[in-house]
């Protein structure tokens, strides 16, 4: 529901990083979204596309790295990517697991073409 704000924050981060590459061009930003981040990847992409137009940062692509929910098995302690809330442990088959992650909302990396980075401010 706040995807426009998310897209705008991503663009701000790219803009700040782009200043370090006055002779280069940031052409891709990779955003990591967890299954439980409460953020719709399609809506973020849509908003991002609209914000990039006329931003002076074009061409700039957004790639989304989707991360599934993570569980820790209560029986054997194995961490695993779970398809849903009642996924069984791949190690021991137990359905007794606790949620441990998959709610990330992070900018993973940028892809930059040419130009050495200016010194960090």
């Amino acid at each position: 529901m706040h995807e426009m704000g998310i897209a705008s924050s991503v663009l701000d981060a790219v803009r700040a990083e782009a200043r370090r590459f006055p002779n280069g061009h940031v052409y891709k930003v990779v955003l990591r979204i967890g299954a439980l981040a409460g953020v719709d990847p399609d809506a973020v992409s849509f908003c991002f596309g609209a914000l990039v137009l006329g931003s002076g940062l074009e061409p700039l692509a957004l790639e989304i790295e989707y991360r599934s929910r993570q569980h820790v098995c209560a029986a054997c302690g194995r961490s695993f990517a779970a398809a849903n809330e009642d996924s069984a442990c791949p190690e021991c088959g137990s359905a007794d697991a606790v949620f441990s992650g998959g709610d990330e909302l992070e900018i993973a990396y940028l892809e930059v073409e040419d130009g050495a980075p200016a010194a960090r401010a």
Binding site: S9, E17, E106, A108, E113
Partner: peptide, 14 residues
């Protein structure tokens, strides 16, 4: 091409 790792939360300003 250079890959620039950021590993920064989107809501880092917040």
């Amino acid at each position: 091409m250079e890959r620039l790792p950021l590993e920064r939360k989107v809501l880092s300003e917040n």
